[in-house]
């Protein structure tokens, strides 16, 4: 009779159901957009786990996204692997790079952590350019069509693409919910709220944060790999500083430390740019003003603001 343990799962499950229905009714353009949004939302959730729940303000997540993107793309084009294996490689690349970054960067905290992650990501970006003969440099490369087939489904067609994006998104959002509901999730929040106190209670902050960063890297890496496989292009712009700032913006906009916030943030940002560029040539202005209005109305992010008003079931 006690529905309490189910409650946190209601909102994500409802969203997944809605998105599944959307997959059948959306017109072609928005169908493709939504597939992109879902993949980027996985990336945003990875960021949310690190920043929203654990307080790790990283400016280097483009490195993890890029690691997954390039691992998958290069494995397909140079190694001729299948899409499934490429996704797995992207996942591992994101997690592995996050582990290596974390071992060094987590010796710092706060703003220093920001800058160290930023620097590592910048070095990663420049390495992509430096080894341009291999990576295609800033131009990037087109992912071979042979690597864009999964289990007989052609991922260059709308249905399977949406299906895989939604599948990943489902795993990611349920995984995120499970993590933050588990005892480990409480340790994460404790790290965010008061790292010293959590340490006194016997939790090792370094170890906890490292695990969190690796999980975050796994999310980012698989999102990068999926982006390359689903949309067919790998390029250095995805590893540039912009893709470190975007997940921060998405998470803050949607509501950091909320389950649905990352998705909402990506969704709003995407359509802000898309719609405003349809109606005015000065669309940067519209986006800027909209961000100001949103943040003035809901400084804790949209879901953060709603949660404050209407209770916690949303989060």
């Amino acid at each position: 009779m006690n529905g309490q343990p189910l409650k946190p799962w209601l909102a994500p499950l409802a969203l997944i159901g809605l998105l599944a229905v959307m997959g059948f009714v959306l017109p072609a353009y928005h169908h493709n957009n939504m597939a992109r949004i879902l993949v980027l939302a996985v990336f945003a959730m990875g960021y949310n786990i690190a920043f929203g729940y654990t307080g790790l303000l990283s400016l280097g997540h483009a490195l993890f996204f890029g690691a997954g993107l390039y691992a998958a793309g290069l494995a397909i084009n140079q190694g001729g692997v299948t899409a499934g294996l490429a996704l797995g490689l992207g996942l591992l690349a994101g997690g592995g790079v996050a582990l290596a970054t974390g071992v060094l960067a987590l010796r710092t905290a706060g703003v220093s952590f920001m800058i160290v992650t930023l620097m590592f990501a910048q070095a990663g970006y420049l390495l992509l350019l430096y080894f341009g003969a291999f990576t295609g440099g800033d131009e990037g490369f087109v992912v071979a069509r042979t690597g864009r087939v999964l289990g007989g489904f052609d991922l260059t067609t709308d249905g399977p693409r949406y299906g895989l994006a939604l599948g990943l998104f489902t795993l990611a959002i349920l995984g995120q919910t499970a993590i933050v509901r588990a005892p480990f999730g409480r340790v994460m929040v404790a790290m965010r709220e008061n790292s010293a106190r959590a340490q006194m209670l016997g939790f090792d902050p370094f170890r906890t944060k490292l695990i969190v960063l690796v999980i975050s890297g796994l999310y980012s890496g698989v999102a990068g790999a999926a982006y390359g496989i689903l949309f067919g292009y790998v390029g250095a712009s995805f590893a540039a500083i912009q893709y470190s700032i975007l997940p921060l913006l998405w998470v803050l906009l949607g509501g950091s430390g909320t389950v649905l916030g990352p998705f909402l943030g990506v969704f709003i940002m995407f359509y802000l740019i898309d719609l405003s560029s349809s109606y005015t040539s000065a669309h940067l202005m519209v986006v800027g003003v909209a961000l100001l209005v949103l943040v003035l109305f809901a400084p804790r992010g949209i879901l953060g603001g709603l949660r404050k008003r209407w209770g916690t079931w949303l989060a």
Binding site: I245, L248, L249, L252, L253, S256, A282, H283, L284, M285, V287, G288, V289, A290, L291, L292, L294, V295, L296, P299, R300
Partner: peptide, 17 residues
């Protein structure tokens, strides 16, 4: 946190100007 979003918004506005 809110000021990060706000200053990103300002950045867009100044660039468009």
């Amino acid at each position: 946190e809110a000021t990060i979003v706000a200053t990103i918004g300002l950045l867009y506005i100044f660039q468009q100007m």
